[in-house]
């Protein structure tokens, strides 16, 4: 009697915390929607697709910011993913055992550096290097839209590079964890069939595939929301451009920069609506990546369960 009631209060207690988390998420979504009601009412879906950002005349469109956020994050993802996976594979599969733990700690340490520090490093080290690179770009290349733009140093390329550096430790430590969870029986199965080391690693990657995709998406989610470092190097100029060299703007950066200046209510609501969009995008990306990681972890145990023999097998 006593024990079962303990059990129940434990369940209710933990359930309440879980509910609280859900409540907070819903509360944020609700509050963001409420606080951006003016902008939602005035611009509707046009807010997503127009590029004017004019606080003076009260005309707002978020496209350049959505573009800047997605473009810089996707570029960062393209740069970071191969490196992060390389690090994960090296640490979990190739490195000598004594180096494994120190290397793992080191990558996790990179994740703990505050983004303002990355930002400072970006301004003083990365931006000058990018500028030299831009100056060295031959004129013929500059005709291509991708490389078209003034040699400022600050801009999309600098932002993508710094985001990549920040995302690598995240992606690589999650991917390393996934590879570590691949049952050794999978590698053994491959080796026993005459696989080389690399082929056995490929089997492990194949087994953890969806989890690794999840790790990459988690990095993507992190890149989407990153504010400080990006604000310091992207140039903060709202425009939709494929150019790597042109300064652009992101959703997080515009909120951080303009929130204190937003004098009238519509301006404020427009900024908060950008926050709402960012919230929706990041929650979506995170949910997706969690689901992918979870599905590999679940599969890691599934093959070992011995199911009862089905009738047809008995008959055969």
């Amino acid at each position: 009697m006593k024990r079962s009631s303990d059990d129940r209060s434990f369940r209710i207690g933990t359930g309440a915390f879980a509910a609280l988390v859900l409540l907070i998420v819903l509360g944020i979504a609700f509050e963001l929607t409420r606080q951006s009601a003016l902008s939602i009412a005035k611009f509707g879906l046009k807010f997503w697709t127009t590029s004017t950002w004019d606080p003076v005349s009260g005309d707002f469109g978020a496209l350049p910011f959505i573009w800047g956020t997605l473009y810089s994050s996707i570029l960062a993802l393209l740069l970071a993913t191969p490196i992060a996976l390389g690090i994960a594979i090296f640490i979990s599969e190739l490195s000598p055992r004594v180096l494994r733990q120190p290397l793992a700690y080191l990558t996790e340490l990179l994740a703990a550096i505050p983004s303002i520090v990355y930002g400072l490093w970006g301004v003083f080290v990365l931006v000058p290097i990018v500028r030299k690179l831009e100056l060295a770009t031959p004129a013929a290349l500059k005709k291509i839209p991708l490389f078209n733009g003034p040699p400022l140093g600050v801009g999309m390329l600098a932002a993508a590079l710094i985001l990549a550096v920040m995302v690598i430790p995240f992606t690589s430590s999650v991917a390393r964890e996934i590879l570590k969870n691949v049952p050794s029986t999978q590698r053994e199965a491959a080796y026993a069939l005459g696989a080389t080391r690399w082929e056995a690693i490929k089997v492990a990657i194949g087994f953890g595939k969806s989890g690794i995709i999840g790790a990459v998406m988690l990095g993507f989610g992190r890149a989407l929301g990153e504010t400080m470092a990006v604000t310091m190097v992207i140039g903060n100029s709202p425009q939709v451009s494929a150019s790597l060299f042109k300064p652009q703007y992101t959703m997080a950066a515009v909120i951080a920069n303009e929130f204190t200046e937003a004098a009238d209510e519509l301006y404020l609501h427009a900024l908060i609506e950008i926050g709402l969009l960012l919230f929706i995008i990041t929650v979506g990306v995170n949910l997706l990546s969690r689901m992918l990681i979870w599905s590999t972890k679940r599969r890691a145990v599934a093959p070992t369960i011995v199911t009862p023999i089905v009738a047809e097998e008995v008959a055969a």
């Binding site: 049952p183 029986t185 999978q186 053994e188 199965a189 491959a190 026993a192 069939l193 089997v203 194949g206 087994f207 599969r299 093959p303 070992t304």
Partner: peptide, 13 residues
């Protein structure tokens, strides 16, 4: 020299 293990270990394919 082929090998069959105690726990069946098919690939997730």
């Amino acid at each position: 020299v082929g090998m069959v293990f105690q726990k069946s270990n098919p690939f997730p394919k």
